[in-house]
Simulated assay, not measured.
Amino acid sequence: MKSEMQSFSDIAAKVAVRSLIEEVELTPKPGLVDQVNTGAHQDLTLQLMIKSAETLTDTFKNIAFVSYGRNPSQALREEIAAIGRIGERKMFEATGGVNTHKGAIWAIGLLVSAASIGKGRFTIKEIVKRAGEIASFPDRHCPNTNTNGRIVTLKYGVGGARGEAQQGFPHIMKFSLPMLYRSRAYGLTEEKARLKTLLSLIAHVDDTCILHRGGTEALMFAKKKAAYFLTKDNLECINTLDEEFISRNISPGGSADLLAATLFLDKIHALKAVDEVQKYELIK
């Protein structure tokens, strides 16, 4: 029989991977890979994104396992970072060197770790708080390489994925989760609720993926357009936004990572109140 630690690690990994797959399958998404097109990307496909997500199962499982019942610490930060780097290598092997989920490994890996610290009993607020505490410890073994994200954060003075995590994922707590819950309460379909959730992120996040491709002009354009389309009841008009983003080479990849993280938090929170059979239904 599996221990509680093993069982939760399995569940957390399944929820994490499921959240990544649901993010990429959401359609239509402006400038992003979905079931209709590959957005502003020439090197990505839906199948490649799904394959990449599935290769991360062991990564998230191992992060959950080493974090179970512990407290945020320097040692834990560096342990999960080492696991994350192994996950990155597996991702690149599966995708032929294409970066599909590096940002998601960071964000969701931290949330998996934080949820496992609480043995699956933490509230969402407690999870993001612990995740921020973990992220605030330096990783002394991190390779000193100039990634696109690091270059952009220095060039434009934005927090990026690291700052978002260290602050306890404020854009999730202030914008995406409230939008998801509010949209459901208004009776929107789950697909439309998630599309509005994504738009709420694009409208507010200083997305380093957008900045990397098009600078501040592209970021301001994306934010303005997303905020405008949020006011529209007919979300079919997102197809128009998709065309505009593709023509301008805009890909809100950072917002997509935060959408997947939002879905993870929503699912992991829902699991607290259900039995084992229902848990299987939620994560399959």
Rank of each mutant, 00 (worst) to 15 (best):
M1Y: 10
F8T: 03
D10Q: 11
A13E: 13
A16I: 15
T27Q: 13
P28K: 00
G31L: 02
T45N: 02
Q47G: 10
L48W: 03
I50G: 03
K51T: 12
K51E: 04
V66Q: 02
V66I: 01
S67V: 01
G69L: 10
P72C: 09
S73P: 13
A75P: 03
I80H: 03
I80W: 03
E88C: 10
K90P: 12
K90A: 06
A94E: 11
N99D: 13
N99E: 05
K102L: 15
A104V: 04
A107F: 04
V112F: 02
A115M: 06
I124R: 07
V128Y: 12
V128H: 05
R130P: 12
A131Q: 05
E133M: 00
S136G: 06
F137E: 04
R140G: 14
H141D: 15
C142A: 15
N144Q: 14
T145A: 08
T147W: 05
I151T: 14
I151W: 12
V158S: 11
R162M: 14
Q166Y: 10
G168R: 11
S176C: 04
L177Q: 03
L180S: 07
Y181Q: 12
S183P: 11
Y186E: 15
A193D: 02
R194S: 10
I202M: 09
H204C: 13
C209H: 13
L211F: 09
G215E: 05
A222Y: 09
K225F: 04
Y228R: 10
Y228L: 08
L230K: 11
L235E: 04
E236T: 14
I238G: 06
E243L: 06
I246P: 04
R248W: 07
P252M: 09
P252T: 08
I268P: 00
A270P: 00
L271P: 03
A273G: 09
D275T: 07
K279C: 11
Y280G: 12
L282F: 10
